[in-house]
């Protein structure tokens, strides 16, 4: 994927620094609560479930499924409409927003529950997690990203 500097660039904060540092290495990492084992997202200093403040980062599978999506028909900076914005349910049970790569941005091509896998888009000095539809013969093979 080519760099598109006009796209919105996130600015990491201390509580999210590990997420973005690991993304720069091409890996998806998440914090998990040592006490109740809840995977915490978005990253923050204490567990929102049990309020324990000992969290340990681990490397996530990078695999998930499409739980919901919209196909935006109004251009946003750096994005050519139409494009899909999806809610990805990770195997670890938390959700990330992502674009959908490897599938045409039309309603019939995108199925809820279809498997996706993480990759990283280089953007303005940040590596951004993005999810690509796992080709399994049911999806639009060779569709542009």
């Amino acid at each position: 994927m080519t760099e598109a500097p006009e796209r919105f660039v996130p600015v990491p904060t201390p509580e999210t620094a590990t997420y973005w540092a690991k993304a720069a290495e091409g890996e998806l990492w998440l914090p998990r609560c040592d006490s109740c084992r809840t995977v915490v997202f978005y990253p923050r200093p204490a567990c929102p479930r049990c309020h324990g403040d000992q969290l340990t980062w681990f490397r996530a599978s990078g695999r998930g499924t499409v739980e919901s999506f919209v196909i935006n028909h109004v251009p946003a900076p750096g994005f050519e409409a139409p494009y899909a914005i999806a809610l990805i349910l990770l195997e670890e049970g938390i959700r990330l927003t992502s674009n959908l790569l490897g599938v045409e941005p039309v309603p019939d091509a995108i199925k809820l529950g279809m498997p996706v896998e993480v990759e990283f888009e280089q953007r303005g000095g940040v590596a951004l997690p993005q999810f690509r539809v796992v080709s399994d013969g049911l999806t639009a093979a060779g569709a542009p990203s």
Binding site: R7, S68, V70, N72, V74, L87, T97, N99
Partner: peptide, 24 residues
């Protein structure tokens, strides 16, 4: 948090953010 985890995906407007869970 929205700026780090939603807006980078071209979800810059309410019509492409507020609406995201509806299909689920």
């Amino acid at each position: 948090m929205a700026g780090q985890f939603e807006l980078p995906y071209g979800a810059a407007a309410t019509f492409s953010r507020f609406t995201l869970p509806a299909l689920a």
